[in-house]
Design a protein around this nucleic acid. Sequence first.
DNA 1: AGTTAGCACTCCGGCAAGGAGAGTGCTAAC
DNA 2: GTTAGCACTCTCCTTGCCGGAGTGCTAACT
Lengths: 345, 345
Amino acid sequence: MASGMDDRTTRVLRHIVEDYIATAEPVGSRTISKKMGLSLSPATIRNIMADLEEAGFLAQPHTSAGRIPTGAGFRYYIDHLLSRQVLARSEMDQLHRAAGEGNGPGDELVRQVSRLLSNLAHQASVVVVSSPEQQVLRSVSLMRAGVERILLVTVMRGGWVQHRLIEGEPDLTGDELEKISAYLNELAEGQTLPQLRARILAELRKEKARYDRVMGRALTMGARALADAAPGEVFIEGRANILEQPEFAEDVHRLKRILRAFEEKSVIFRLLDRAMESRAIQVSVGLENTVEELPDISVVASGYRQGASSVGSIGLIGPVRMDYSRVIPLVEYAASLLTTMFEDR
Amino acid sequence: MASGMDDRTTRVLRHIVEDYIATAEPVGSRTISKKMGLSLSPATIRNIMADLEEAGFLAQPHTSAGRIPTGAGFRYYIDHLLSRQVLARSEMDQLHRAAGEGNGPGDELVRQVSRLLSNLAHQASVVVVSSPEQQVLRSVSLMRAGVERILLVTVMRGGWVQHRLIEGEPDLTGDELEKISAYLNELAEGQTLPQLRARILAELRKEKARYDRVMGRALTMGARALADAAPGEVFIEGRANILEQPEFAEDVHRLKRILRAFEEKSVIFRLLDRAMESRAIQVSVGLENTVEELPDISVVASGYRQGASSVGSIGLIGPVRMDYSRVIPLVEYAASLLTTMFEDR
DNA sequence: AGTTAGCACTCCGGCAAGGAGAGTGCTAAC
DNA sequence: GTTAGCACTCTCCTTGCCGGAGTGCTAACT
């Protein structure tokens, strides 16, 4: 069906989508005719438009307005018609610089890149960091954090730092704590969290642990602290950019819905979920994204990796009318930048 | 001048402010007359209103509209006329529960409380955490974070965790790192960051350091990592709540300005700056707050303490038309809650 | 002297009518 | 299959008008 369109028809569709992206207004037959160098008259374009409407790619807000692309129209455009823009040297440089500045622990890095991405694209940018469950540990440390409070700090490959508080631990001497910490660190290095858990349980079962007090303590504390899986994280930057888009500036209700969604991390998680798995860039248009609360927004996202395993994804969220030809390369570049940054960490 | 108003005049002002807070619309003489039990006729009220306008407490949007309070009007109301609402038991309980859930490291605690505060008040809530410079260290630890990368983790009293990356450190054996870490930890406990810096420099000057390799390394690394002061942090919760306020829903431009300000942490810092110093609650109305970008918003904030020293402040940001009688007790309670939470940490 | 009723006046908001502009669909001719 | 022409539709903007809300002023009242 979709492939049953001839070249001329698709060219018209393409022009309509691009004009609509540029102007945010319904586009009429005359405009397209001019844009195509008057090789076809407005009347002909109108016939083609009628066909496209019947096929579900266009819609009319009202009888005598121009056409606007439907979700399906955008989808077709993205899949078949889109020609990517080449990123400007300066944009790539800016992204690199942002990544360079974010040389703190992992979160600073992604945050900086995300912020710049959002400004370059004039959309809100979102990064999700997957739950650290699959990630590989580099080191762990136990630190005193208060009376009967101990902090377990874990550092993952790639520079992610996490900490969890263990409460109600009877006090230990500094020396004991150091020993316990060192012992746990030894067990942890190179393991994933589930592996470490399993390892701790295995060690606990060994007889020796029962006799060595320090070891025993280390293991039970480790088991306690790691009992429940750590959640992933979500960073959102450039919220104000979405106000740049006329569709949101006008419709306060939509704006409210999307800002509320930003406060609810689980929603964002679901939104970028698919991108994390896949290696290619993902574009969800309007209703396609599985989040009921936000039927009229698009998400362009791409996963980034740490070595072979995907550890998160970065993307943009905005109205369906987005400049995909520019935004898609941007997101892709940002994701690949993150991947390389994490490579040598 | 201000105190030169008789009781009747201030009562009228008070009713106008409260009615305006409730309805967000200019209020007329008839409304006030009714509200005061018709003890005064609309005509009399009009005369009083004219006086109040001359004194700068009221303004008319246009000739035949009612009056709305000016910034000065709100100021006077807050300083002299306000009667605080008593918090509902359930609200206090909710805040306590939020504080209980946030039993992770410090930031989770303030975040949870801030979020709930924002929902109870229907405003955006902001917490700033002062730069950790004045805070007292509980423990530090050095951890391996990558090739030639070491992470310095510091835990403050009150459960604040910070980490900084030290790059380009030649690799050490695990054993060496542990020793260095332990030594630094010993130096750090009970010190503030500046004290620790001074102490490290003093130790470095001692002869012994030159001979003990581990010690020497520990000190130079410590000096490097702590060279520049750590910045404070800012958390903003409940951004979407400001859309509840009709003044923002209507005026997209204002909305944009405030959302942009939220992305610029330094602005928020300046806004809550004053509250951090002072022990009492601070209310800045409109132009009073020193931030040029946001002349038409109010900030209600209060510092919270860790023992004797103030370590941050929590507050609400919204339109000048805020329900101060409710919001002020809320913020105060939240701040005192944070203070008690940090007490036993 | 302060308070009040009465009244003319102003301004906003809503509504209807009318015209311009944009764009369509259809028909008939090329 | 393409195009010109034309009638039609719909939105949007302007204009004018009316009712409502509220004010300020004046003159009468207590």
